[in-house]
Write a protein that binds this DNA or RNA. Structure first.
Lengths: 143, 143
DNA sequence: CCTGAAGTTATAGTAACTCGAAAGTTGCTT
DNA sequence: AAGCAACTTTCGAGTTACTATAACTTCAGG
C-alpha cells in the first residue's frame, strides 16, 4: 500500500502543504497516520478524501461543516440520510452559485464589448480626458 | 436627484451597512458625499457602481484590484485599453470558475444519487454500524 | 427634555488560509 | 565523523474581507 508525505500529497492534490496540514489539524482527515518521527503519513484514500474536501470547499462549504460531514462518514451507514440532506443542500447551493456567476459573466461580457467598441471608434491617439464627475463616467461604467 | 443613506443603500444592494462602509473606506466609492453631520450620502450612480463592484467581487476580484480599476475609471477614457484587459482577464477567470463548479456539481450529484440508492436498498431501520477503518468507508465516500 | 433610531469612528473578532522561525530526522558527501 | 541539504514538525503571527461591538453624536417625535 502506497503512502505519501505532506509534500507528495500537496503535489497530487494541487493544495499547499500548509493547507493540507490545516485540514488535518482541523479534523478533516481522521485517518492520517504518523511515523516514528511524528511525520504525517497519507494513504491513497486520504488523497481521495482530500479531493472530496476540495469539492465541498470550492462549492462554498465552510470547514466546520465539512468537519461535521466527515464525522458522519466515520460514524457509519446509519448517518446516510443526514449526509444525503447535506449533499442535496450543497447541490442546490452550487446550482444557484453557477447561475449567479453566469449572470455576472454576462455583465462582464457586456463591459468587454463596450470597451472594445470605444477602442474601435476612437483613433489610437484620440482619447480625451473626461470630466471627473461626468455622469457618463460612473453611470455608463456601472450599467 | 435622489440620495440615500448607508442603510438605504444596503437595502437596495443586498449588502450590509458594514460592507458598504468598508468599500467606501477602501476607496471603492470615490464620489460618495457627506452631509453636515458627516453622514455618507449616496447617489443613484453610487448604487450602480456598487453593483459593478459586487459583480467583480463575486467573480473573485480582490478589493485592491477593484480599487485599482475604480481609479482607472475615474482617471478617464485614456485608461480604456487597460480596463479592457482587466475585464477580459476577469471574463476568462469567471468562465474557468464556472467550469470548475460544474465539475464539482457533477461530483455532488453523483453522491446524492449514491446516497439515494443506499436509502432505497436498505429498509428504513436496517442500517448497520460499519467498521470505522473500513476500506469501503472513505474510499467509497471519496470516489 | 428624553428616548430611540440612525449615523459616525476605532477597534476587535472571525474564517481560511499563508507564512516564517526554530527545532528534529534523515541521508548523502566530503 | 561532521556537516549540510532537504525534509518534516509545531507554534505563532500576518492577510483578506468582512462582521461585530463600543462609545459617541445627531435629530425627530412624544
Amino acid at each position: 500500500m502506497a503512502t505519501y508525505s505532506v509534500q507528495q500529497v500537496a503535489n497530487k492534490t494541487g493544495l499547499t502543504t500548509y493547507t493540507v496540514r490545516y485540514y488535518h489539524d482541523h479534523g478533516l482527515l481522521p485517518f492520517v497516520q504518523r511515523d516514528k518521527n511524528n511525520n504525517r503519513v497519507f494513504s491513497d484514500s486520504d488523497i481521495e478524501w482530500l479531493e472530496m474536501i476540495t469539492c465541498l470547499r470550492s462549492t462554498g462549504m465552510p470547514i466546520d461543516q465539512i468537519k461535521n460531514y466527515t464525522d458522519l462518514v466515520v460514524e457509519g451507514e446509519n448517518t446516510v440520510p443526514e449526509r444525503y440532506q447535506i449533499m442535496l443542500n450543497q447541490q442546490k447551493r452550487t446550482v444557484n452559485e453557477i447561475k449567479e456567476l453566469q449572470q455576472h459573466l454576462a455583465t462582464i461580457k457586456y463591459k468587454v464589448d463596450h470597451y472594445a467598441e470605444i477602442m474601435e471608434n476612437h483613433e489610437p491617439d484620440s482619447f480625451e480626458p473626461s470630466n471627473i464627475r461626468d455622469k457618463e463616467n460612473l453611470k455608463t461604467e456601472a450599467k
